[in-house]
């Protein structure tokens, strides 16, 4: 009994060593299958690909994938229209109001195919995994829900609340008037 207690404590302590895993290499067949979304006819909402579910919906709860999404958000000049999420030429991403649905499949379809009135398609610029990473990041920009993963803070001065804080209780920016 006396020997058991330290063993249990040690096992508990070592359990804390488990870290988020990063998958760097996605096999090309998986990459192809990740593009297999089934959007509804109006292209808002729909079913994610089977492999996305089989992988355990890996992008929204993985800080590395979200950080990659953030890097691509900068690199693909999403800021050019959406600014730091506050919007400009394009709609705001911080106000909790999603023109084409808040779910990840809608965001994926938006990024892949573009939307009317200006949103371009990124299918020829990013592969399917990167599209999922950006979609997951864009979904968490506003953080209205508690999440177990987030990107790190910006090194520059913040123009909006950072991603790695508690969920917002009030709108971060004014929702658009309808």
């Amino acid at each position: 009994m006396r020997a058991l207690a330290p063993a249990v404590l040690a096992a508990l302590a070592f359990a804390g060593c488990q870290r988020e895993t990063r998958d760097f290499r996605t096999d090309p067949p998986v990459l192809a299958a990740l593009d297999d979304v089934a959007p509804l006819p109006n292209r808002i909402g729909g079913a994610p690909p089977d492999v996305y579910v089989a992988l355990g919906q890996p992008y929204q709860a993985n800080a590395y994938a979200l950080s990659e999404g953030k890097r691509l958000y900068d690199g693909m000049n999403c800021k050019g229209c959406h600014a730091d999420g506050g919007g400009g030429t394009g709609p705001a991403l911080l106000d909790g109001w999603w023109r084409y649905g808040p779910d990840i499949v809608s965001l994926y379809v938006t990024l892949r195919d573009g939307r009317p009135r200006g949103m371009p398609s990124y299918a020829d610029k990013l592969n399917s995994e990167q599209l999922w990473q950006v979609a997951a990041y864009v979904q968490t920009i506003g953080s209205y829900r508690a999440a177990t993963a987030a990107t790190s803070r910006n090194d520059q001065m913040q123009s909006r609340p950072s991603e790695n804080r508690g969920p917002a209780r009030a709108p971060l920016t004014e929702p658009p008037s309808r």
Binding site: R22, F24, R25, T26, P28, L31, A32, R71, L126, N127
Partner: peptide
């Protein structure tokens, strides 16, 4: 495979 973790994606 050549440089795991690098930011260069696999373009099929």
């Amino acid at each position: 495979t050549v440089k795991p973790g690098s930011k260069m994606p696999l373009v099929p």
